[in-house]
Design a protein around this nucleic acid. Structure first.
Length: 296
DNA sequence: GCGACAG
DNA sequence: ATCTTGTCGC
């Protein structure tokens, strides 16, 4: 009797979460139609020529200075207590010039492929708070602890469809990209974002072992690797900041930033393996939660 | 059928 | 994501 009740309960829960996931999939596909995977911003990267260009151009030509980073940490004893963190770094000195935290209770579980539905709301709230008070350090772009288009929700239309139903295939190809947390945040905040993964979410035949092997065969000469899946599609890049470090980070396009630009920014913000905006958000998020759970 | 699966 | 010690090296 008890086992029977337990079984029916489990199956109800299973179908319930399956329905939720269907809703999530539709939400992702809907938001995905607004996704931009090319450079779409007014600022320039702070190369040596950029400063000169601002003077020569005459028109307002801002240089990228304020780079945001977001992360969430969790209490060790209660995984539903989360601390969302937003930091902003000055790109020139690579130091934190703004930080804000929000401790909340999360009711949505972590489901692989649907991280955004758990983490995006709290992070969006932190961004909104900063924007509504018109803060001068509001980030020009955001680095996200999680993937962008390197995400399993992307599917290539089969060749068959391109030959016989090209219009349909084209419409499907709008949904070709994956749509991870970085894309989700970028679209909803209308902010350029790039995704930084510390582990690889296996997609399109790509595995950690594959990437490691490729990086090893490339040797010390290259520290960057294009992540091309079985379908031939490029999902992002694996980069190791240090030739001695064999564990790379996984960079992918979030929103309104090309992969080439994303890699440049990841490079110029990396003092250690993980780019500073992400790393600082990570460290400070954990510290903040520790202090505020021991103090009460 | 079984395993894999960002944070 | 989180738990967890020391240890090897610059």
């Amino acid at each position: 009797m008890e086992t029977l009740e337990r079984d029916t309960g489990d199956s109800k829960e299973a179908s319930y979460s399956a329905e939720i996931q269907n809703i999530w999939v539709e939400a992702q596909d809907s938001l995905k139609t607004r996704l931009v995977t090319e450079d779409d911003f007014r600022w320039q990267l702070p190369t040596t020529t950029a400063a000169a260009t601002t003077l020569i151009g005459g028109g307002e030509c801002e240089v990228l200075k304020y780079v945001g980073g977001v992360d969430i940490s969790f209490a060790k004893d209660d995984p539903s207590i989360a601390c969302g963190t937003l930091v902003v770094l000055d790109l020139q000195i690579l130091e934190v010039v703004y930080e804000d935290y929000s401790v909340v209770t999360l009711h949505i579980p972590y489901v692989p492929g649907f991280l955004a539905f758990r983490e995006a709301p709290i992070l969006l709230q932190l961004l909104e708070k900063m924007k509504t008070c018109d803060h001068p350090f509001y980030p020009q772009m955001l680095m996200v602890d999680g993937n962008g288009i390197l995400h399993p929700r992307g599917k290539c239309p089969p060749t068959f469809y391109w030959i016989f139903f090209p219009v349909f295939a084209y419409c499907s190809s709008i949904l070709l990209n994956g749509f991870g947390l970085a894309c989700h945040l970028g679209v909803l905040a209308n902010l350029p974002t790039i995704g930084i993964g510390k582990n690889l979410h296996h997609v399109d035949g790509l595995t950690q072992a594959t990437v490691r092997q490729l990086l090893e065969t490339k040797g010390m000469h290259e520290d960057i690797l294009s992540l091309r899946g079985d379908s031939g599609r490029t999902w992002g890049a694996a980069m190791r900041s240090n030739p001695g470090s064999f564990k790379p980070i996984y960079i992918s396009v979030g929103h309104r930033v090309s992969l080439a630009t994303a890699v440049k920014i990841a490079r110029m913000t990396s003092k250690y393996r993980v780019p500073e905006p992400i790393r600082q958000a990570d460290i400070r998020s954990r510290d903040y939660l520790r202090k505020h759970q021991s103090a009460g």
